[in-house]
């Protein structure tokens, strides 16, 4: 399944996200999905990664001034990071609750802002950490590991 990775060097992809750059999130999720498919990765893992990227990039576009999405692939798994400058999250625990949202009506009309973004990311990640400072920005790190048998040391 992931045997092809044995010969694949580490890959790091970076994508800029601007304020209200709403339609790039799906574009990035779609692009990364295609890259991972070319690497021959498991479909379930690809879907989890695509969901994390979609939601995390949307969060940056919705709540921050600008940010960078980084996707790092190595033999252990796939690591997704968003690092943004913006409003930050005053109460991370509250933000993680399903249904909690501070998104605008414009965002809701697009079908987002239902307060499910971070919840979805958590559901799809093996590890998730969020660091945030109000009026400075937020760093989100999500990790998805390949199944144990596929680890190549």
């Amino acid at each position: 399944m992931v045997d092809s990775l044995q010969y694949t060097p580490q890959i790091t992809l970076e994508f800029p996200i601007g304020e209200e750059d709403f339609f790039m999130a799906g574009e990035y999720a779609s692009r990364v999905k295609k890259t991972l498919q070319q690497l021959g990765l498991d479909q379930t893992i690809i879907r989890r990664i695509a969901i994390i990227i979609y939601e995390a990039a949307m969060n940056v576009a919705i709540h921050a001034h600008h940010g960078i999405l980084t996707v790092h692939i190595d033999t252990k798994g796939i690591f997704i990071k968003t690092d943004d400058k913006g409003a930050g999250i005053p109460d991370i625990e509250l933000a993680m609750q399903e249904g909690y949202s501070t998104a605008s009506d414009q965002v809701r009309e697009m079908g987002f802002g239902a307060g499910m973004g971070l919840y979805n990311i958590k559901q799809c990640s093996d590890e998730l950490s969020i660091e945030s400072k109000v009026n400075e920005g937020t760093i989100l790190n999500a990790k998805v590991y390949f199944p144990e048998k596929a680890h190549i040391d």
């Binding site: 969901i51 697009m110 079908g111 987002f112 239902a114 499910m116 973004g117 979805n120 559901q123």
Partner: peptide
């Protein structure tokens, strides 16, 4: 009509 629900 919710993208996040579709993704989930």
């Amino acid at each position: 009509d919710l993208i996040s629900e579709m993704l989930l």
